[in-house]
């Protein structure tokens, strides 16, 4: 479980995050949504410790990352898997080497065991056939799947995904969403996904936080989101014509 307690962050006098409180539970896919500039990425960076909040605490299963020394933070980071917007695969390494990298660095396994583990992770994301290719030789969707395989190689307790569907077609996005959701359930990990893809919200949103202007404007799950009275959230959600029609049809059926 991860708790964010009263998080504040400013950049050059401009408030980006203001008094954000949230709890992210194990085995659940937690989504942070909001318009561009709402503070989603800054909030995620504060949670993972890439940015230090000006005020407030981030607590990982009772361990406060905001007051920790750098060495202690490194211990927690080894329990984290992260999927970046650009996949962030090491372009000088093959797909298999990318997945093996965290095992090479931090596990005490033998070479054979590391190889087997990396292959199992690649198999989990259905990419075993691409193991010898370089990241530049595979598609964007496949790169995201390799990044997921790398993120789960060390069996993390926490998984963070920053805009995992950015630049992907809807069908591939669906595959990535389902993979993230399934892995979350399978490993019982705490997953936080930063997105503005409404398909992801409706597919995998076990717990959704809506940020607006740096504040937490709404919190709920995918069953509650379509019936919300929150004006800002409605404006954000139904800027999509398809979703507006879905909502209208839902009301007609009622």
């Amino acid at each position: 479980m991860i708790e964010a307690i009263s998080i504040y962050k400013q950049f050059e006098g401009k408030t980006v995050l203001e008094d954000i409180n949230a709890t992210f539970n194990n085995g659940a896919t937690n989504l942070i949504i909001g318009q561009s500039g709402a503070g989603k990425t800054v909030f995620l960076k504060c949670i993972v410790g890439l940015l230090a909040p000006d005020k407030g605490k981030i607590i990982y299963d009772g361990r406060c990352i905001t007051t920790m020394k750098e060495k202690e933070k490194i211990t927690i980071r080894r329990e984290i898997g992260m999927l970046f917007q650009s996949a962030a695969l090491f372009d000088s390494m093959s797909v298999l080497e990318n997945v093996m990298f965290p095992l090479d660095m931090f596990s005490s396994m033998t070479y054979k065991e590391r190889l087997a583990r990396a292959r199992a992770c690649l198999d989990r994301v259905n990419l075993i056939e691409a193991q010898d290719k370089l990241p530049e030789e595979i598609s964007g969707g496949m790169q995201k799947r390799v990044a997921i395989a790398r993120a789960i190689a060390l069996e993390p307790k926490y998984l963070f995904c920053d805009e995992p569907n950015s630049g992907l077609d809807p069908q591939t996005s669906l595959v990535i969403d389902e993979l993230i959701h399934d892995i979350t359930k399978e490993y019982g990990i705490t997953t936080i996904v930063n997105t503005h893809d409404m398909n992801s919200v409706m597919n995998i949103g076990d717990h959704i936080l809506f940020l607006s202007g740096g504040k937490l404007a709404w919190e709920g799950d995918k069953t509650q989101i379509l019936n919300t009275e929150n004006e800002q959230l409605n404006e954000f959600l139904f800027s999509s014509e398809i979703l507006r029609q879905v909502k209208e049809q839902a009301f007609k059926h009622k």
Partner: peptide, 8 residues
């Protein structure tokens, strides 16, 4: 960032 996130 990916390296830093892994604790490297």
């Amino acid at each position: 960032d990916a390296l830093d996130m892994m604790g490297v």
